[in-house]
């Protein structure tokens, strides 16, 4: 019984902490780079729990030489990839990075990697660090 209570309380506590974090990432998907390529994409939902706009100006990963924010757009039947200078998430809102839309482009992994860490920066400091297991 005590064990069950501890589990429930821990779950509630971590839920509260997650809720209070200013920026929360969910639905994170980073496929392993496809054979023959040195790159992959990153998809996730970012939620801003604060009362102010959050602007992500840079994303980095120790396991990839570069991480860029991009957006795929379809114009007159032509697929284009636009670099995004920053990513704005309004107070209390979420932004989705999803296939066919905004996404991260991760290039040149350090080797055969199974997992990675993504660091999201605003103009001053790291806002959020997430650990991701790469999918097949």
């Amino acid at each position: 019984m005590r064990f069950v209570l501890t589990v429930i309380l821990t779950a509630m506590l971590s839920a509260c902490l997650a809720e209070r974090a200013p920026l929360v990432a969910t639905d994170i998907v980073v496929p392993k780079p496809r054979p023959g390529t040195q790159m992959t994409a990153g998809y996730l939902t970012l939620r801003n729990n604060t009362t102010q706009t959050i602007t992500i100006t840079q994303v980095s990963s120790p396991e990839f030489e570069s991480v860029e924010m991009h957006e795929s757009v379809l114009e007159d039947g032509v697929a284009r990839m636009r670099p995004l200078r920053d990513l704005t998430i309004r107070a209390g809102q979420s932004v989705q990075l999803e296939p066919g839309g905004k996404h991260l482009m991760l290039t040149r992994p350090v080797g055969e990697i199974e997992a990675t860490t993504l660091e999201f920066y605003n103009s001053e400091a790291v806002m959020l660090t997430v650990n991701v297991t790469l999918t097949d």
């Binding site: 040195q38 992959t40 990839m81 296939p99 066919g100 996404h103 482009m105």
Partner: peptide, 10 residues
């Protein structure tokens, strides 16, 4: 092209 991270694999 193979260095296309989003639209092509999709």
């Amino acid at each position: 092209f193979t260095r296309c991270p989003d639209i092509c694999p999709l």
